[in-house]
Design a protein around this nucleic acid. Structure first.
Length: 106
DNA sequence: AGCCTGACACCTG
DNA sequence: ACAGGTGCCAGGC
C-alpha cells in the first residue's frame, strides 16, 4: 500500500463510498476505512476528506466522528450542520447526532 | 532520515 | 461522563 497506484486506489475507494452515502444518513471515519478494506487507515480517510478538490460533489457533510459529532469547525461546521438538518437529520441539545438512528448500516 | 501532525478510534482509570 | 494515553499511517517539512 505504499505504491502511488495503491494510494490512489484507496482515495478512489473513499470517493466511491462517499458518493454512495444516502441522504439522511451519516457514517463515521472508521466506518469508511473499514468499508474500503483498510480499517487502520482512519487517518488517511481524514486526509482524503481534508484534501477534496474544491469543486467536488461528495456529501462529505455526512461523515462524522464516532461520538456523533461533526469534526469540522467554524463556518464549515455551520454549513454542514444545516445541510444535515435539511436532510432530516436531527441534532440533540449537545449538537450530537444519534448514530443508532441515522447511521448508515448496510 | 527523522520528527510532528492530523476533519480519528479505542481502551483505561 | 471524561481526560489521557496509545495505535495508526501518509504528508509535509
Amino acid at each position: 500500500m505504499t505504491h502511488l497506484k495503491d494510494r490512489q486506489t484507496f482515495a478512489d475507494q473513499v470517493y466511491a463510498i462517499l458518493a454512495a452515502i444516502p441522504a439522511g444518513k451519516v457514517v463515521t471515519y472508521g466506518q469508511i476505512a473499514k468499508m474500503a478494506g483498510l480499517p487502520s487507515y482512519i487517518r488517511q480517510v481524514c486526509f482524503v476528506l481534508r484534501h477534496l478538490p474544491s469543486d467536488h460533489q461528495f456529501p462529505c457533510h455526512r461523515v462524522i466522528n464516532a461520538q456523533g459529532h461533526l469534526s469540522v469547525q467554524g463556518e464549515t461546521y455551520q454549513r454542514y450542520k444545516q445541510r444535515l438538518i435539511d436532510e432530516g437529520i436531527e441534532f440533540n441539545h449537545h449538537d450530537k447526532i444519534d448514530l443508532k438512528k441515522y447511521g448508515w448500516h448496510i
